[in-house]
């Protein structure tokens, strides 16, 4: 019996090392950690998890970017970032997507940023709606430029 418990200990330790995955967003219930709006549209939502496991949810990619830029959570504390894929409406790691800024795709906070995990789907969106393709760093500087004043205020 004692040996059995000893066997279990490494298992217990191993189980702590689990893959970081996003917490599901409850649409119509959860509110955005940056702008307070109730998150309603799965085509644009986003999420941030800290290394301590605290979860922040956002109604739009621009709000996630603004939240990071405002420095409420330090960059070295961030464990993972996810954004919704515009077509599949699933949360995908920011490292796996490209972004599109298009007047024709109206995002909840008006900066019109959407994300695509699939290169083909991104091409399709560009064909249909036009706009400019960005990577995550570009998104951060785009939002930083557009919302300079708002982020400066540290709006929480």
């Amino acid at each position: 019996m004692r040996y059995l418990i000893l066997l279990l200990i490494p298992l217990l330790i191993l189980s702590c090392e689990k893959v970081v995955s996003p917490e599901p967003i409850e649409y119509g219930k959860d509110s955005c950690s940056f702008c307070r709006m109730i998150i309603a549209d799965a085509g644009f939502s986003a999420e941030l998890k800290t290394k301590k496991g605290k979860v922040y949810k956002f109604d739009s990619i621009e709000c996630l970017a603004a939240f990071i830029l405002s420095g409420k959570v330090k960059r070295e504390e961030i464990s993972a970032l996810w954004v919704s894929d515009f077509y599949s409406r699933e949360l995908v790691s920011v490292e796996r997507v490209k972004f599109l800024v298009s007047e024709k795709i109206r995002s909840p906070m008006g900066l019109n940023i959407s994300a695509y995990a699939d290169e083909e789907k991104l091409k399709e969106a560009v064909r249909n709606f036009g706009g400019k393709v960005l990577n995550w760093e570009d998104v951060l500087s785009y939002v930083g430029e557009k919302w300079k004043e708002r982020i400066g205020k540290g709006s929480f």
Binding site: R36, M37, I38
Partner: peptide
């Protein structure tokens, strides 16, 4: 559901 929101 939530009320009225006037923002920004």
């Amino acid at each position: 559901g939530v009320g009225v929101a006037v923002m920004y």
